[in-house]
Write a protein that binds this DNA or RNA. Structure first.
Lengths: 150, 150
DNA sequence: TTTGAAAGCGTGAATTC
DNA sequence: GAATTCACGCTTTCAAA
């Protein structure tokens, strides 16, 4: 198997680790038919090549009191200004994700707050920080999120 | 410390595991000032209470050839039909996330494909499977995604 | 890629606070 | 109830082949 075996073993390792990021190298070895050290080296290589960006626990945000999820689409109020929204918004911790997009709006943010009241304050902070107008879409329920894609 | 110490140690453990889901119990213990067994018990309790839903590797989708990310907003074509879109779409693996939302559209999907051509096929499949009209917003770049929120 | 060995870690029971 | 200590076995990690 080649070192960049992305259609075979490495792909399988990525799948397994996407589903269970705490899986042991021993179990990864059993699942892929390799020795513990072999998978270990492959995982390290996947990390070094930047194909695995990290590992994270999936937190139940409802359970910790952040029950409100929303998408906020934003567009600059003054299009002649330099467009550095992501920089200006980086320190707002309620923003979980930030994408720039094609279409009527420039960016989409995904945010989590505890209450609608907190969302109101957050919107004010976003508008002030980035000089943008916003359009908010409230999430009613999450069927699934960040399902591993392959 | 109480069993539902969500403003203290447990919250800290959630933060640490959000950032590094493979952190050892030994290191979690050092970071929280507890013994290995104590954090171990707390983590197991967080899992049992459903506050930790799982652990996953964060995959670089560009790196594995899934360079196109998009949001697809959908609305039923026939509003008198039973609305079971999530069920009908569940087996389409390109769909990474599925939310129901308030607003003009009923659902937002987040998808990953390799090419615009694949997206075209995917849209056809989604429309056929769920009898919906779609509105697609292409992601140009991802500044950050799934940042831990606390 | 494997083997093998040393160091470190996970896990549970018994104990104490 | 929650934390600690201790001991066993398993896992990680690295060098060598």
């Amino acid at each position: 198997m080649t070192p960049s075996d992305l259609e075979g073993t490495d792909r399988r390792i990525l799948e397994l680790l996407s589903v269970d990021g705490r899986m042991s190298y021993t179990d990864l070895g059993k699942a892929t038919g390799l020795s513990t050290s072999a998978v270990h080296q492959r995982v390290k290589r996947l990390e070094q090549r930047g194909l695995i960006l990290g590992y994270g626990a999936t937190v139940n945000y409802d359970g910790i009191g952040l029950a409100l999820t929303a998408f906020i689409s934003i567009r600059p109020i003054d299009p002649s200004q330099p467009d550095d929204c992501p920089d200006r918004l980086r320190d707002i911790t309620e923003i979980e994700s930030c994408w720039s997009v094609a279409g009527e709006e420039s960016y989409i943010l995904k945010i989590r707050t505890a209450t609608p009241h907190d969302l109101e304050h957050l919107l004010a902070r976003i508008r002030a920080a980035a000089n943008v107008s916003t359009r908010t879409t409230i999430v009613l329920s999450t069927f699934y999120e960040n399902r591993p894609v392959t």
